[in-house]
């Protein structure tokens, strides 16, 4: 079985932990759990007839001046950057943050996910998409279990490249 280290990064409160919870245990907790530093989860997924063991490193807020050990990013096979569609401050500096994650991890591509779709109307969603200049890979809702599985499938595919 192949094992891959994948990262989940993004500001505090964008729903990284909720996405993982939805993906790993297939349930969503209404409790707000802020991660401290890093939290590691494991999930075995089947991709193209092979089983991949994903070690998901849920890294706490990466923007601003938070001090996170750079070593958390080392040796990652793929990374997912999550932002909150309902909070502009989580996507205002996307380009800069994606560049930083690329530099720290040495990865060429970062999967970009806009989460909390459930909090926006379709008009609001269009407006947010127009504001963001970087291509978004997937729009998700951990609360409604929308596109969560697909997001991790994208991440798995990226980790195998």
């Amino acid at each position: 079985m192949i094992a891959k280290k994948v990262l989940l990064v993004g500001n505090f409160g964008v729903g990284k932990t909720s996405l993982i919870r939805r993906f790993v245990t297939n349930e969503f907790s209404e409790d707000y759990i802020s991660t401290i530093g890093v939290r590691i989860s494991k999930k075995e997924v089947q991709y193209n007839e092979q089983i991949v063991k994903l070690l998901i490193w849920d890294v706490a807020g990466t923007s601003g001046n938070e001090k996170i050990p750079k070593a958390y990013f080392l040796g990652a096979n793929a990374a997912m950057y999550v932002f909150d569609l309902s909070r502009e401050e989580t996507y205002i500096a996307l380009e800069e943050n994606l560049k930083m994650v690329k530099e720290l991890s040495g990865l060429q591509n970062i999967t970009l996910i806009g989460n909390k779709k459930d909090l926006l109307t379709s008009e609001e969603l269009i407006a947010v998409k127009n504001k963001i200049t970087v291509p978004i890979d997937l729009i998700t809702s951990a609360k409604d279990d929308e596109n969560v599985e697909d997001a991790f499938t994208l991440l798995t595919a990226e980790s195998l490249k």
């Binding site: 590691i40 063991k53 070690l55 040796g75």
Partner: peptide, 25 residues
């Protein structure tokens, strides 16, 4: 990466992959 390559355990330990990851973190 913190990925586990091999291990030995005298007793029963929680998920070794997770332990390796957390230990690395």
């Amino acid at each position: 990466s913190g990925l586990l390559s091999g291990s030995y355990s005298r007793g029963n330990i929680a998920d070794k992959d997770m332990v390796s990851g957390m230990l690395t973190a």
